[in-house]
Structures are given as structure tokens and as C-alpha cells.
């Protein structure tokens, strides 16, 4: 027997938002996560427990533009589209090249990666260190929320059912920054991270003006601590061993990973702290 499935695919964003206002729906962008999450046996469609709204064809969600120097990225831009867009920072592109593989990069979207809210979401550590904000739109208007407030826990986001994430906003960064992204997994391509790390630093005259770190797959959401970051502001590069040890010890206290099928808590913690120590020990930071 074929179960009845309700699905919508509107030509315009406003029609899509009206539908979301009428009914609690599952929003599907690329589908690369949701199709796996609800996978059935071969030949049987995935069982998605709500009416479905497809959005990845909406051109309103594929724009990339600068506004007041901030970078606005449409939520349905695929990774491949971001790689080809001249406005996307090199550091972000270098990271995207290490994510998934060509076939998934042609389908997976930035907005989807955020709303899936996986503890191991590939783009999340980077978006946290960029202080990314999300534009949520509904029939009632727009609101802006920091990514760290939006993501509440594994697969939990602060989105009302009539809202949609339409844009990801990377605030303007004054001066040159050095950004790294590291992902550790079983395989280079198409893998879910055991640990991931993003580091961001801005130096002027050998002193740290701004520094940010985010760790992925070592807790229910990304681990970031603005209090720990503040301890490094104004310090001279290269950092003294004692400073590095203090920062690593501080993260040692707040990083609490778990054992699961992909890795162990002990491995995750050791590697996360090594990645941090490596980033802090660099003799110089080239802007990228």
C-alpha cells in the first residue's frame, strides 16, 4: 500500500513562506542529510513524518552579495556554488574543498548543514569563528540570530515552524585574518568528523587583536569560549609556552567528548587539544 505523502514545491519564496505559516513542514534543501536520517529499506521512500517543502530550486535563496561590507550568502547555495563564487573568502573555500566529495558538494547546501545541527556539522566550526549570523524569514518579517544561539543541541535549532533560514551573514572583518580549518575522519572524502577545529586570528604589529576557536564533534554543539579567547588579546606572536599551556589547559576543562561508533572520547579530546596547540604554536600567521 502506498502511503499518502504531501509535498510542496512553490515557484517563489513568498508562497513557500505562506505554506510554512499554514502548516508545520519538513524543509528539504539538498536532502543529503534528511534522506539518510529517514532512510527506509531499498525501494521504499524515506518516511518523513511531516508534509514536505522543497526549497533548493528557489533562486531567492541562491544569492551571494555584499551589504554594508558584510557578506550575505543565500541558504541554498551548494558547496560547489560557493567554491565558484568570487565573493567567498579563500579560507572558506579551502575548507569547503576538504568537505564531502564532488557529488555531495553539488547538492548539499550551507543552510542545510546549519539547520541539520549535527554536532559534527562540517561548516559549523568555521561559521562560529566567523561570528556568522542567520537571517530567518517568515510571513511576519525577518529576524537575525547568531549561529551560536540558533543551534541549541543535536538536531535542535531555534526556528519557529513558520520561519526559514534564508541567508547566512558573515560580518565584515577589519584587517587581515588568518583562518584555519582542520577535520579528522576515517577517510579524506565523504566522512563524518571525529574531531574538527577552526581557528581565526587577526594580528597587528605582532600582537593579537582578535582570536577565536571552535571545536566540532566534541560536544552537543560547537565548543567555543570567548572568555578563554580574551586571555590572548594583546599577546605577542610567537606566543610564550606558558600562555599556550594555559589556553590548552582551559579548553581541557571544557571539552567533554563522548564515545560513539566513530571515535572515543579520549581520542577526540587528545586530538582536539593537539590541533589547538598546533594553531597556537605557529611562528607567524599569514593572512588568507
Amino acid at each position: 500500500m502506498i502511503e499518502k505523502i504531501t509535498a510542496y514545491r512553490f515557484e517563489r519564496l513568498d508562497e513557500t513562506l505562506s505554506q510554512l505559516n499554514r502548516e508545520d513542514c519538513a524543509i528539504i534543501a539538498g536532502g543529503t542529510d534528511v534522506m539518510v536520517l529517514h532512510k527506509s529499506r531499498r525501494g521504499v521512500p524515506p518516511k518523513i513524518p511531516k508534509p514536505i517543502v522543497f526549497i533548493n530550486h528557489l533562486s531567492e535563496l541562491k544569492q551571494v552579495y555584499q551589504h554594508h561590507k558584510d557578506l550575505h550568502i543565500g541558504a541554498c547555495c551548494t558547496y560547489s556554488e560557493l567554491l565558484e563564487n568570487p565573493l567567498i573568502p579563500f579560507a572558506l573555500k579551502n575548507a569547503i574543498k576538504t568537505i564531502a566529495a564532488p557529488a555531495i558538494r553539488n547538492r548539499g547546501t550551507l543552510g542545510g548543514n546549519i539547520c541539520n545541527a549535527s554536532p559534527a556539522g562540517d561548516m559549523l566550526p568555521l561559521l562560529y569563528v566567523y561570528n556568522a549570523k542567520l537571517l530567518l524569514r517568515s510571513v511576519n518579517g525577518d529576524r537575525m540570530v547568531a549561529i551560536s544561539d540558533f543551534i541549541q543541541g543535536p538536531r535542535q535549532v531555534q526556528r519557529f515552524h513558520n520561519e526559514m533560514v534564508t541567508e547566512i551573514i558573515l560580518p565584515f572583518v577589519l584587517g587581515d585574518s588568518h583562518v584555519v580549518f582542520e577535520k579528522v575522519g576515517n577517510r579524506n572524502a565523504d566522512t563524518i568528523a571525529k574531531v574538527s577545529f577552526a581557528g581565526f586570528v587577526r594580528i597587528s604589529k605582532d600582537r593579537i587583536d582578535d582570536i577565536r576557536f571552535a571545536f566540532g564533534a566534541v560536544g552537543p554543539t560547537m565548543v567555543r569560549s570567548i572568555d578563554i579567547e580574551k586571555k590572548l588579546i594583546g599577546k605577542t606572536i610567537p606566543l610564550a609556552d606558558a600562555d599556550i599551556a594555559e589556553i590548552v589547559a582551559a579548553f581541557d576543562k571544557i571539552i567533554r567528548p563522548i564515545d560513539d561508533q566513530r571515535s572515543t572520547a579520549a581520542y577526540r579530546k587528545t586530538v582536539a587539544l593537539h590541533l589547538l596547540r598546533y594553531f597556537l604554536s605557529m611562528k607567524q600567521y599569514q593572512p588568507n
Binding site: 539538498g30 536532502g31 530550486h57 547538492r107
Partner: peptide, 22 residues
């Protein structure tokens, strides 16, 4: 695994992840 790869509008994609409604 990529065994199900097809072209969608000339782009390589995994057909196991594509709901046909899209």
C-alpha cells in the same frame, strides 16, 4: 560510495540522496 552517481543538470550527484520531488 558513489555507486549511484548520475548527472543532474550536468552535475554529478548521488541518486540515493535525491527525493524525486526536487
Amino acid at each position: 560510495c558513489g555507486a549511484c552517481s548520475v548527472f543532474v543538470n550536468n552535475l554529478l550527484q548521488n541518486s540515493c540522496l535525491i527525493p524525486i520531488g526536487s
